[in-house]
């Protein structure tokens, strides 16, 4: 028990730092810019980033299991494209949603299978998956497809009033539901615990008798599912299918995970983190937009600095932990292998 307590508090500290940063940034924005301190600005963060929250949460699961999924952004674009194409052929909303989710699940499961069955590196498999998904969406059409389906349009423009005139979109509810569901899965299911164990050390997990094959495939399936759901939400967001949607978004999702305290070596991280990470980068973006004279590279540089600071924080925590456990080895070894042993 004594061994477990510090780990949880360390974990909480990264989350707390993110949360604190969120409040400070929001406060700074409110002081400096008119109209920043309004509920709607805050809610807009959720409306504009709902898809990213969903995708990043799925990504977090993969990262915790010790892998990575680079195909998420392309998969979102593919889902938007397939939806657009199906609607153009007269499908109804229910069919499209089902087809999108099935596509995501199949895509994710396929990647997971390749990774486990042939011992290929997740980087390479999901990289190929990224090319494949983007390539298929180009094949469907190189032009953007407008979606006019009534149900989708209605869902897209439906405002759920929270307080007075302030509103959120349907997508926000979906995103929050995903975060809660994933939190529950991680905490209360065998699968969730297996993912953490596998990310901590795959060999020990296998020796413990955990089903590595099934867990690997399931993790990537889950990420595929989240990407598909993110794709549906994004399709609602823009009401169009377009093969160039969200180029490079996989890196944003990974960045959100890092800022949200998910350790990239796997086995460690709290699944509310990605959402907070997304909100952080979202607030920075909003501040830069409110400022209104900044060039795009400042967004990149600000997010880069943020990444650096959070990683430094993570490192310090892990190093401290190592020091307190095993003073001799940590003196000269701030590397990942020792961390795995500790967990």
């Amino acid at each position: 028990m004594n061994r477990l307590t510090p780990r949880i508090s360390h974990n909480n500290i990264v989350i707390l730092a993110t949360l604190l940063l969120l409040i400070v940034l929001y406060g700074a924005g409110s002081v400096q810019y008119t109209g920043f301190f309004s509920l709607q600005v805050f809610l807009n963060l959720f409306i504009d980033n709902a898809y990213l929250i969903i995708v990043a949460t799925g990504m977090a699961f993969v990262i915790i299991s010790g892998g990575i999924d680079l195909s998420v952004a392309s998969l979102v674009a593919l889902v938007s494209m397939v939806s657009g194409d199906l609607f153009a052929h007269g499908a109804n909303a229910g069919t499209v949603v089902a087809a999108s989710l099935a596509l995501g699940i199949a895509f994710g499961a396929g990647q997971g299978y390749l990774i486990y069955r042939f011992q290929l590196h997740p980087w390479i498999v999901t990289l190929a998956g990224m090319f494949l998904a983007r390539g298929i969406s180009f094949l469907i059409s190189s032009e953007s497809i407008v979606i006019t389906n009534e149900t989708y349009v209605k869902l897209s423009q439906h405002k759920i009033h929270v307080w007075g005139q302030n509103f959120v979109s349907v997508s926000v509810l979906i995103a929050l539901a995903v975060v809660i569901a994933v939190l529950l899965v991680a905490k209360f299911t065998f699968f969730g615990r297996a993912v953490y164990a596998m990310g901590g050390n795959e060999k020990s997990a296998a020796l413990m008798g955990l089903p590595i094959a099934r867990t690997t495939v399931l993790v990537y399936t889950l990420s595929g599912f989240c990407s598909a759901l993110g794709g549906i939400v994004f399709t609602l967001y823009t009401l169009s299918g377009y093969s160039l949607h969200l180029m490079g978004m996989e890196m944003e999702a990974i960045a959100a995970c890092v800022i949200g305290g998910i350790l990239l070596t796997g086995g460690f991280g709290y699944l509310i983190g990605p959402m907070l990470g997304v909100l952080c980068t979202g607030i920075i973006q909003t501040i830069i937009m409110f400022q209104g004279t900044l060039s795009s590279w400042w967004t990149k540089i600000a997010i880069g600095l943020l990444l650096f600071l959070f990683m430094a924080l993570q490192r310090v925590i892990v190093m401290r932990k190592e020091k307190s456990r095993n003073p001799v080895s940590s003196m000269n070894s701030p590397n990942s292998e020792n961390k795995i042993v500790n967990l």
């Binding site: 990575i68 990974i254 990444l307 490192r315």
Partner: peptide, 13 residues
């Protein structure tokens, strides 16, 4: 001791 992928992600951004 930062993970290579993340460490270089900073410079990528």
């Amino acid at each position: 001791g930062i993970q290579p992928m993340v460490a270089t992600l900073i410079l990528l951004t």
